[in-house]
Structure formats: structure tokens, C-alpha cells
Amino acid sequence: MSQPPDSAPTPVPTPHPAADQTVPSRVPLAIEDWLTVIIMALLALITFANVLVRYFTSASFAWTEEVSVFLMIVLAMVAGSAAVARNRHIRIEYFADAGPEKRQRALARFGAAMVALLFALMAVLSARVLWDDVQYGETSPGIGVPQWWYTMWLPILSIAIMLRAIGLMRRGGRPASDSSELPTSPEVRAEEHAP
């Protein structure tokens, strides 16, 4: 029997640099995670209650559509904050995740700066809308509550996303991990994954 010629060893693919190098966040990401769970649960309960009422009475709650739309907007903003902190916001991966690690980090910092700028502008403009709602006594179209009950959350959540983007820039483009997950040394990680 003949032996096959020695072949070159197969190179082991290296993991994406941004994926394994998370940095603990000062503000726990669990805040956004729990808010997402709570808002989703509220949306499900409101929708389920409205379906039951419509099925048994041929009428519906007047407030459900207005509150559901508000909760969906808040959900998008809260999830956007978590996505920015974890460096998972929308981007063109062909450009953002290719090339050397230094280039990837520079693009991540640039993207975070643009996100921070956008949401700073959104915070200012939505604060003006909030002021108008308070000043002119605007009420919501569906149930007639003060409109500022809804609009006050837009500048607050815009500032939260802006701060998460600034945190991403300060971490050098490295995604955040929850602060409760303390980083471990390579030796400890090797012991945890040993057979």
C-alpha cells in the first residue's frame, strides 16, 4: 500500500475579531433586554384581550390600536439601543466586516459617531415636538389623552441610543457585553471548555 503524500495542514479559520472581543458595559444591557420582554408581553396581552372582546361582543376596545402603535415605537427604540450597544445595527457587512481588524474598528467607530449624531438631532427635534404638544394642549386622536404622554419618550429614548453609540465609540468599536458577565482570562476560558 502506498502512503498518500503529506499535505499541508488545513488552516483553521479565525473568528471574526469583533465577535469575541466584547467589553463590559457600564450600564447593564439587561435594562433593554427586560424592557423588550415587558413591552412584547404587553403587546401580546393587549392584542389578545382585544381579540377576545371582539369575538364575544362584536365591539373592540377603542384604545388598543393607539397604545399598540405607541408600544411598537418604544419597542423599536429600545431594541435599537441594545443593537447599537452590541454593535449589531444595520450595516453593509461586505465593507464593515472585511479587511484588517484596525479598519473594522475604525468603521465601527465612524458608524457609532454617525448614529450618535443622528439620535442627538432626533432628541433635539423631538423635544421641540414635545414642547409644542405641551404648549398647545394636543390630545391623542384615538382616546383623547394628552399627546405628550406619548411624545415624551422619543427624546428620552433618542438620548439613550445616542449614549449607547458614544459608549461604542469609547470602547473602540468593540461590542458591549452585560456588566454582570465579567471578563475572564484565556486560561480560565480554556479550563471551562476543556473536555
Score class of each variant (00 low, 15 high):
111 G>K: 02
87 N>Y: 10
88 R>D: 05
64 T>N: 08
22 T>D: 04
99 G>V: 02
21 Q>K: 13
28 P>K: 08
81 S>N: 11
118 L>Y: 13
131 W>Q: 09
88 R>G: 05
67 V>P: 00
27 V>S: 09
26 R>F: 04
101 E>P: 01
87 N>R: 12
57 T>K: 04
44 A>Y: 10
49 A>E: 03
72 M>L: 14
85 A>D: 01
49 A>C: 05
73 I>E: 09
95 F>K: 04
56 F>S: 06
79 A>H: 11
117 L>V: 09
97 D>C: 00
105 R>T: 02
47 T>C: 10
2 S>K: 11
63 W>M: 08
51 V>N: 06
64 T>Q: 13
15 P>L: 12
45 L>H: 09
66 E>V: 05
15 P>C: 08
101 E>Y: 03
52 L>Y: 06
82 A>L: 13
89 H>I: 06
72 M>V: 15
121 L>G: 12
6 D>T: 15
90 I>G: 05
111 G>F: 01
101 E>M: 05
107 L>H: 00
107 L>G: 01
75 L>C: 03
96 A>P: 01
6 D>I: 14
80 G>K: 00
113 A>M: 10
34 W>Q: 13
77 M>C: 08
1 M>A: 15
110 F>E: 03
72 M>W: 14
102 K>N: 03
127 A>K: 02
71 L>W: 06
99 G>F: 00
35 L>G: 14
81 S>W: 03
4 P>R: 15
68 S>G: 13
70 F>H: 14
47 T>H: 11
108 A>L: 01
54 R>P: 03
96 A>Y: 00
45 L>G: 10
15 P>F: 11
129 V>F: 10
127 A>T: 09
132 D>Q: 12
33 D>W: 13
9 P>T: 13
61 F>E: 01
84 V>F: 02
24 P>L: 05
50 N>T: 05
88 R>K: 15
65 E>I: 09
64 T>C: 08
41 A>T: 13
86 R>I: 08
72 M>D: 07
24 P>C: 04
41 A>L: 15
107 L>Q: 00
4 P>N: 14
78 V>K: 07
132 D>W: 11
23 V>D: 01
40 M>T: 14
37 V>K: 15
134 V>F: 09
5 P>V: 12
126 S>G: 00
115 V>E: 05
106 A>N: 04
26 R>A: 07
46 I>K: 15
118 L>A: 13
82 A>Y: 13
